[in-house]
Design a protein around this nucleic acid. Structure first.
Length: 243
DNA sequence: CAATCGTCCTGCGGGC
DNA sequence: TGCCCGCAGGACGATT
């Protein structure tokens, strides 16, 4: 499912392909990302925005299939194919993307340690995993990367914010940057249906340590990886080395 | 008021 | 082999 690294991968690939082209007569001047939203900007200030949700794909010059929801055709004959098996994703044209952009918290890759500490202080009773996935709190992290970030930080997903030590907070913050950047470098995680804008799978799957590894041995300590439900969503963590 | 639950949707895998 | 059931999940609205 497309989280920050996957959408960022698509953004970088698309930028090189479509900036300068025209869509319905409007000139494309940029391709941006905010949280998990992809934004195509036009010269008149309007934008086309996309949320890929769980199974959305945006493939440049892709071949339409039975899961294709829309094909955007550029004036030079190239096209952008929007596929979505589960139909949770959406796209819309807006006069301005400002309103939607301000509904999100700070970008996960832009917040500094002090800023991270400051926002954590506002939610002392929250469980850390759902909080990392709350887009109004911090933008871009979903189920896969929240599990992986907390594993790297050796922190259990159920830990309450107020019980975290300053050192643990720092290590969580460090790993938000480290893991998201490494995932971008690998063009994301193709755990299920995700494909990048070139129609290729991402390579981060091989780096996953706990996500969907229930019952397997922890690669760090040999302990058991467990899956639990937190607020109806699955969370994976090592029983032994995550505290 | 924050946390949880139901909802949207389809493909897949487990169980029999 | 085939069918049924349950599960997966982002985000929003409703509910507790």
């Amino acid at each position: 499912m497309p989280e920050l690294p996957e959408v960022e991968t698509i953004r970088r690939q698309l930028r090189g392909k479509i900036v300068g082209k025209k869509l319905d007569g409007k000139k494309i001047v940029g391709v941006r990302r905010r949280a998990k939203i992809l934004i195509i900007d036009f010269s008149d200030g309007s934008s086309l925005i996309f949320h890929l949700k769980l199974t959305g794909q945006l493939i440049f010059d892709g071949e339409p299939s039975r899961h294709t929801r829309h094909v955007f055709k550029f004036s030079d004959g190239s096209q952008l194919v929007f596929n979505d098996v589960r139909k949770f994703g959406w796209w819309k044209y807006v006069k301005s993307s400002k309103d939607i952009e301000k509904t999100f918290g700070p970008e996960a890759l832009e917040i500094d340690l002090k800023g991270f500490k400051d926002i954590l202080e506002k939610r002392p009773n929250a469980k850390i995993k759902p909080l990392l996935m709350d887009q109004k709190f911090i933008a871009g992290i979903g189920n896969i990367y929240s599990d992986e970030i907390l594993f790297a930080a050796k922190v259990q997903p159920l830990r309450r914010v107020k019980t975290l030590t300053p050192e643990e907070i720092k290590v969580i913050w460090l790993n938000i940057g480290k893991i998201l950047k490494l995932a971008i470098k690998n063009r994301g995680t193709s755990e299920n249906t995700y494909l990048d804008a070139m129609g290729k799978k991402g390579d981060y799957l091989k780096y996953l340590k706990v996500y969907r590894k229930e019952g397997q041995k922890c690669p760090r300590c040999g302990g058991m990886v467990k899956r639990i439900k937190i607020g109806g969503r699955s969370a994976h963590f090592c029983l032994k080395c995550q505290r």
